[in-house]
């Protein structure tokens, strides 16, 4: 456990101080600011209009009209940007031969895989919090259910965890950071569109299974603000699955 924390702590620090992280954080906050403010302004105008027309307040719900959009945009950004943060975690170790240090230290492949994932997840959570600032700041001017918001963000944190686990796995497969990014994208998109592929097949049962396997369905239920144990478990098992795959890859590097 201590050794996991050692790896996670060191890599977390080096991740969040890396230029790549700062670039990702900068780019996402720029895009989020733009889209968020635009949505908020539209929402303000439409509520004003409905208030004038119907003589009452709160015709629309800010959670559905603004926050959900904001979370979708954040999610889209993170699908694309997270692999760039995780790309170096293991690929660079291989390339710079520091992998030798990890593989000959008295630690297990599980320590390495879990430590790397936790470092990445930590960095991901920092970015999730960055995105959460926007809706929270809106609290100054509007009333809404914070619980509902936090449940949606729990969902966002979990899918970010999945992107991180996927990214670390992609990074474990290669020496090339570029390849690690591309692999990360492919796997992330696969996770999202697995239900789309189901349309090609006959049989509603099969479609139902595929939809269940698609991370999008489970994420959507979180984003609406409903805490669903099934979805929670599903996304957690996705994360565990990719961490497990990473562990297998690290372990297998002894067998060349």
């Amino acid at each position: 456990m201590n050794r996991i924390c050692t790896i996670a702590g060191k890599d977390f620090r080096s991740l969040i101080t890396s230029p790549m992280f700062l670039m990702v954080a900068g780019a996402s906050s720029l895009l989020m600011s733009y889209s968020y403010l635009r949505n908020l302004k539209q929402f303000g105008e439409s509520t004003m209009m409905s208030a004038m027309q119907f003589g009452q307040e709160g015709g629309a719900n800010i959670h559905f009209s603004v926050f959900m959009q904001h979370i979708s945009i954040t999610n889209l950004l993170y699908v694309l940007l997270m692999p760039a943060i995780t790309m170096r975690l293991l690929a660079e170790e291989r390339k710079m031969r520091t992998y030798d240090l990890l593989l000959t230290a008295p630690i297990t492949a599980t320590d390495i895989a879990v430590g790397k994932f936790l470092a990445a997840f930590g960095a991901g959570l920092v970015l999730v919090l960055l995105s959460l600032i926007y809706p929270l700041a809106t609290r100054a001017v509007a009333e809404f259910s914070v619980t509902q918001l936090l449940v949606s963000y729990l969902g966002l944190a979990l899918v970010t965890g999945t992107y991180m686990a996927v990214g670390v796995f992609a990074s474990s497969l290669t020496e090339s950071v570029l390849l690690a990014v591309v692999l990360g994208w492919i796997l992330n998109l696969f996770l999202w569109f697995i239900s789309q592929g189901a349309g090609f097949f006959e049989g509603s049962k099969f479609i139902a299974v595929m939809e269940h396997l698609s991370i999008g369905q489970h994420f959507a239920s979180f984003v609406r603000g409903t805490l669903n144990v099934g979805s929670f478990v599903f996304i957690l098992s996705c994360i565990a699955f990719f961490v497990f795959l990473t562990q297998r890859v690290v372990e297998s590097s002894r067998w060349r």
């Binding site: 050692t6 080096s14 710079m96 031969r97 030798d100 230290a105 008295p106």
Partner: peptide
């Protein structure tokens, strides 16, 4: 173990690196 290429992290301070190695050794 000192491999052919020293397994050092270019972005770490010498002291921090050695502390990290000691921590990896538990």
């Amino acid at each position: 173990y000192l491999p052919e290429t020293p397994p050092v992290y270019m972005d770490m301070l010498v002291e921090d690196y050695l502390i990290y190695v000691a921590r990896l050794r538990g």
